[in-house]
Every structure is written in C-alpha cells, then in structure tokens.
C-alpha cells in the first residue's frame, strides 16, 4: 500500500509534529510513504473567500503533485473535504479529478475504512475531549451528526477508543462548531471567539484534560483562546495521540 502524504501549509509551518505523527502512524502500518515537496496548499483559504480564480491553480497543482500516488492521506478533514467536495467547482470537467477524489482520505477515515486498523500498542490514560470538526463531520461524514436521525458513530472516537486507559468527555453540545471557519476567525472575530469560548467551557465542565480533533485548524483557534485564558487544558491533534506522543 502506498500513500502520498498531504501536509497542509499551516501544519507544515506551525505544527510539524502533527505531520511527523502522521508519518509515524503510517510507517508502523508498513505503508510506503511519499512526500512530494512541491505541495503547499489545497487552495481552501481562497475558495472559502470566494476567490475561485486564485484557488483553481492550486487545485491544478494538487492534482499534478499526487497524480502517481495510490492514496492521498492528510491529517486535516477540512483540506480533504476541499478536494472531495469543492474541486468540482474549481476544475470543472477535469478527467483526472474523479480518481483523485476517490483516493484522497482524511487520516482517521483512512485508518478505519482502508487500513482497518484493529489495535494500537500504547495507552493514553487521560480524559479526552473530542472536538468533532465540522468538515470532517458534515462534509466527510466521519461521524453521525446531532441534526440527523441516524445510528451514532464516530470514526475518530472509534480509533481513540482502542487506546488503553482513555476516557472520553461527554459534552452538552456534542458537535457544535468551534468558530474557526478560516477567514471567519478574523472577519467575525467577536462571534468566532465567543463560539470557541463556549466550546471550551463545555469541555471544562465535562472534565476534559486533553482536547483533540482531526483538524488542527480548529485546535489552533481553541488553543489560542485556552492559552490566552491560561486554562489548564492540553491540546493535541488526534494523530499525535494515535502516534503515542505523551500528553505533556
């Protein structure tokens, strides 16, 4: 099995350990990894601002950079959702797009659906608050949504539950948005921060020690608020936990 790793720009620059954790998880599963250095960004910031003309060249780059990979895996639900659901608008009638879309996976869904991981060999004896990032949830359907009438499931939680000693926080609002939303975080700063603070309060009262998610962007926003408020809550990307990094 071969995987082309997609490490989104902000993870590359700001959270390299999340990328390395992803590499280590895949390596342990004996997956052949390729990291194409030409890659930078999926184009989401531009597309989400309505600047499709600026985003389209990045989508074309993406297609080219991952053309030869069997799978494309990324530790970011939001960027994968961009490829799977929004490249159609940027690359209309592109013959290579369907193949790219069907081989591109968010890390956790790749682990549950393709690799079908059965166990991890380490423990994580902490109470974890799982933030259900919206794009993973409502674009990629990596879990059931509180709005819909469907059987309850969560691919991320299903993976984390394989770690010994892990406990989960039960939240009052199980899947409300954290308020990051890309440029929304600065355009609508007041609403964005209030949304984030409300999420954090929910996790605090549920007893969360480690706040995690499959999207580092949500966590960047939440961590920014937590650090400003000097709260005692650790923030880790789910890849770091699955790779066995300690909660220090």
């Amino acid at each position: 099995m071969q995987v082309g790793l997609f490490i989104p720009c902000y993870i590359d620059q700001l959270y390299p350990q999340v990328g390395m954790a992803t590499v280590e998880i895949l390596e342990r599963l004996q997956i052949d990894i390729r990291f194409c250095e030409a890659q930078i960004c999926c184009g989401q910031p531009m597309a989400n601002t309505g600047c499709n003309d600026d985003a389209a060249p990045l989508a074309r780059d993406f297609l080219k950079n991952f053309a030869d990979d069997q799978y494309v895996v990324s530790p970011s639900g939001s960027c994968v959702a961009m490829v799977r659901h929004h490249y159609d608008h940027l690359l209309p009638d592109n013959a290579d797009l369907p193949a790219l879309k069907s081989k591109t996976f968010e890390l956790c869904e790749f682990l549950t659906d393709v690799v079908q991981v059965e166990q991890f060999d380490h423990a994580f004896p902490h109470q974890v608050g799982l933030h259900q990032s919206c794009h993973g949830l409502r674009e990629l359907r990596m879990g059931s949504c509180s709005e819909r009438v469907e059987p309850a499931f969560s691919k991320v939680r299903q993976l984390l539950a394989k770690l010994d000693g892990i406990r989960f926080s039960e939240l009052r609002r199980q899947d409300e948005c954290c308020g990051f939303g890309g440029t929304f975080a600065v355009n609508e700063e007041s609403v964005s921060c209030l949304m984030g603070l409300d999420r954090i309060a929910d996790h605090e009262s549920a007893g969360t020690e480690v706040l995690t998610a499959a999207d580092m962007s949500c966590l960047m926003h939440l961590q920014g608020l937590i650090r400003r408020q000097k709260k005692n809550m650790k923030v880790m990307h789910v890849a770091e936990i699955l790779a066995g990094y300690p909660a220090e």
Binding site: N48, C134, R138, G179, G181
Partner: peptide, 13 residues
C-alpha cells in the same frame, strides 16, 4: 455569506 463558519449544521437540520 461571510457571516458563517461553514459548519454545515444548517444543511443537516
């Protein structure tokens, strides 16, 4: 259209 974090809850509800 920018007063929205694109969370998608509206679509599902």
């Amino acid at each position: 259209p920018f007063a929205c974090s694109l969370c998608g809850s509206c679509t599902d509800v």
